[in-house]
Simulated scan of single mutants.
Amino acid sequence: MKMLGLPLTLFLLTGCAATVNNTSSSAPAIKTSAASAKNITLNLSGDKQHTAGGDWEKLKAAWQYGMKTAASGIGAGYSEQEGKPRATGQDGTVIAVQIKDYRYIGTGTRYGLGAFSGNAFVDANVKFINARTGALLGERNYNTTSSAWQGIFSPMTDKQVEALSNEIVKEVQSK
């Protein structure tokens, strides 16, 4: 029985994987090259309603961690950029994430309140910008959500952002 306890506990703490929806399926392909994946620069923004919210810093930290992890997963350098998205003068891609809407649900909230914590979600518009020239390579809309009725198995915001980051960085890899 002890052997079953640890794996079961670990399973309960990991939750289910987040599902990412790319609502731009009819959009033209992102125009990438091998140079596009050398460096990833995250530029995260949102309107005042979102950036002034109490959970904005938590969401921002989740995006920074998620994108840094996704970038290192493909062997790319990683940096962050504030203000208006702009060229960096080096090979790579500026990932300009505009948060359209979100509801941050953290691990403690989800485990403590389960279904009563509500649904976590992220809705974002992402522009892929050539880091050397500043040219727009393409644009996508991504979203992810969880159902509170999954209880503690439902993916929290940090897991959703990790999944979003992985999908976004995959777009940058040359095809």
Rank of each mutant, 00 (worst) to 15 (best):
Q49F: 05
S79Q: 15
T93W: 03
L137A: 10
A76H: 06
D55Q: 10
T19M: 12
S79Y: 00
E80R: 02
K100A: 13
F11G: 13
Q160W: 05
Q49T: 12
L13F: 07
N39I: 05
G92R: 01
A17P: 03
D101K: 12
D55E: 11
P28W: 01
K2C: 11
Q49N: 14
T144I: 07
G106H: 09
G73Y: 04
F121D: 11
C16V: 05
L137D: 11
G15E: 05
S25N: 10
Q98S: 07
I40F: 00
V126D: 03
K127R: 11
L6G: 02
Y142L: 02
T93A: 10
T88G: 15
T69G: 03
L42T: 05
D47I: 11
Y142P: 06
A70P: 03
F121Q: 09
S154K: 10
T19I: 13
G75N: 01
R110T: 14
T107I: 12
R103A: 13
T88A: 04
S165L: 01
K175T: 10
Y78K: 03
S24A: 07
L164F: 06
G73C: 06
S72K: 13
G106C: 13
L59W: 02
G5D: 14
A18G: 09
T93Q: 08
M67W: 04
Y142H: 05
S79N: 12
P7F: 09
A96R: 00
Y65F: 08
I40A: 08
L6I: 15
P28I: 04
T157L: 01
N39V: 14
T93I: 09
L42W: 01
E167M: 08
M3Y: 09
T88W: 01
A29E: 09
I99V: 14
E139P: 02
M3T: 14
P155V: 00
Y102A: 04
G46N: 04
A62I: 02
F121R: 08
I168Q: 01
K159L: 12
T19A: 13
A17H: 10
I105D: 12
S26T: 15
A76F: 04
D55A: 12
L113F: 07
S25F: 08
A17T: 10
A148C: 05
G106S: 15
N143I: 04
N22Y: 07
L136F: 02
A163S: 15
K48F: 00
A148W: 00
P85A: 11
A18L: 08
S147L: 08
T93V: 11
L4M: 14
A96N: 04
S154Q: 11
V169H: 02
L137M: 14
T93L: 06
G138M: 05
T32G: 05
K100Q: 14
F121H: 13
E162K: 12
L137P: 00
K2T: 14
F153H: 06
G134T: 04
K159P: 12
E167V: 07
V97I: 15
S79L: 04
N43H: 04
V126R: 02
G118Q: 10
M1F: 09
W63C: 04
A131S: 11
A163L: 11
E171C: 00
Q90K: 06
I152Y: 08
P7Y: 02
Q173E: 06
R86Y: 03
S33T: 12
G53R: 08
K175E: 06
A52Q: 14
L113H: 02
